[in-house]
Amino acid sequence: MCGRFTITRRDGNSLAAELGVPADSFVDYRPRYNVAPTQNHFVVRMRYENREVIPATWGLIKSGSKDASMAAKTINARSETVDTRGAFRDAFQKRRCVVPADGFFEWTGPKTARHPIWFHREDSRLILFAGLYEAWQKEQGVWQTTFTILTTAANELLESYHDRMPVILADRDADDWMDPRAPDPHALKRLLVPARADLLTATPVSPDVNDVDNDSPDLLKPPGQMNLSLRSG
Score class of each variant (00 low, 15 high):
Pro100Phe: 08
Ala91Arg: 00
Arg96Gln: 06
Arg89Ser: 12
Thr108Lys: 12
Arg95Leu: 02
Pro100Ser: 07
Asp83Lys: 15
Asp90Glu: 11
Glu106Trp: 09
Thr81His: 06
Cys97Lys: 05
Arg89Asp: 14
Ala87Ile: 09
Asp90Cys: 03
Thr108Ile: 13
Thr108Asp: 14
Asp83Tyr: 10
Phe88Glu: 00
Cys97Gln: 07
Gln93Trp: 03
Trp107Tyr: 12
Asp102Gln: 01
Phe105Pro: 05
Ala101Val: 02
Gly109Asn: 00
Arg89Asn: 13
Gln93Cys: 06
Arg89Pro: 15
Ala87Val: 11
Val99Trp: 07
Arg85Lys: 13
Val82Tyr: 12
Ala87Trp: 04
Thr84Asp: 00
Lys94Trp: 12
Lys94Asp: 13
Asp102Ser: 00
Arg95Ile: 02
Glu106Met: 13
Asp90Gln: 14
Phe105Ala: 05
Gly86Ala: 14
Pro100Gln: 08
Ala101Met: 02
Arg89Gln: 14
Arg95His: 10
Asp83Ala: 15
Phe92Lys: 05
Ala87Cys: 10
Ala101Arg: 04
Val82Pro: 12
Gly86Phe: 04
Phe105Val: 04
Phe88Ser: 02
Ala101His: 02
Asp90Ser: 15
Lys94His: 14
Phe104Thr: 10
Arg95Gly: 01
Glu106Lys: 15
Thr81Trp: 07
Arg95Glu: 01
Arg95Trp: 03
Asp102His: 02
Asp102Glu: 01
